[in-house]
């Protein structure tokens, strides 16, 4: 299940709902991404995405992870638009019979979301704005899958 949205969401509520509907699972793993203010200069972040491709690309990742780790449930929420430091950007939740699969699938989804989901982040600070650059280590992270 996938949601690409501008609105804020409550990770606790999402996790409770997810767990309740996770089927015959023995393990639920979740990751929540938060807007980080590295140098204390960040006013807000602007997240742009490619409507249409975003849903296709993440949908394919969810499908691949569900097949590969035999997940009983999988959910991704990713926001776009204007976000303040401390706000929740995104969340991944996976459920499986045993914990190793849920952990690995969540890491796989995070690695792919990082550099294969069409989102772009712009940091707007008090002293100017700049686009967040991709990192080689994020690209390298895909090699282990």
């Amino acid at each position: 299940m996938l949601q690409v949205q501008e609105e804020a969401f409550d990770p606790g509520t999402v996790l409770s709902e997810f767990t309740a509907g996770a089927g015959p699972a023995g393990a639920v793993v979740s990751f929540t991404g938060i807007v980080r203010d590295n140098g204390g200069d960040l006013d807000h972040m602007e997240i742009e995405h490619y409507p249409g491709m975003t849903e296709k690309a993440i949908g394919a990742m969810i499908h691949a992870a569900t097949q590969r780790w035999n997940l009983t449930a999988c959910r991704v929420i990713h926001r776009f638009g204007r976000l303040a430091p401390g706000e929740t950007i995104m969340m991944v939740a996976t459920a499986s019979r045993h914990r190793a699969a849920a952990f690995e699938a969540a890491e796989y989804l995070m690695d792919y979301l990082k550099s294969r989901a069409p989102f772009w982040k712009k940091e707007v600070g008090r002293s100017g704005a700049c686009w967040v650059e991709s990192r080689q280590q994020d690209e390298d992270a895909l090699k282990r899958w």
Partner: peptide, 10 residues
């Protein structure tokens, strides 16, 4: 056809 810099999701 879409052109863009490397993606920075997550």
């Amino acid at each position: 056809v879409a052109f863009f810099p490397p993606m920075t999701g997550g």
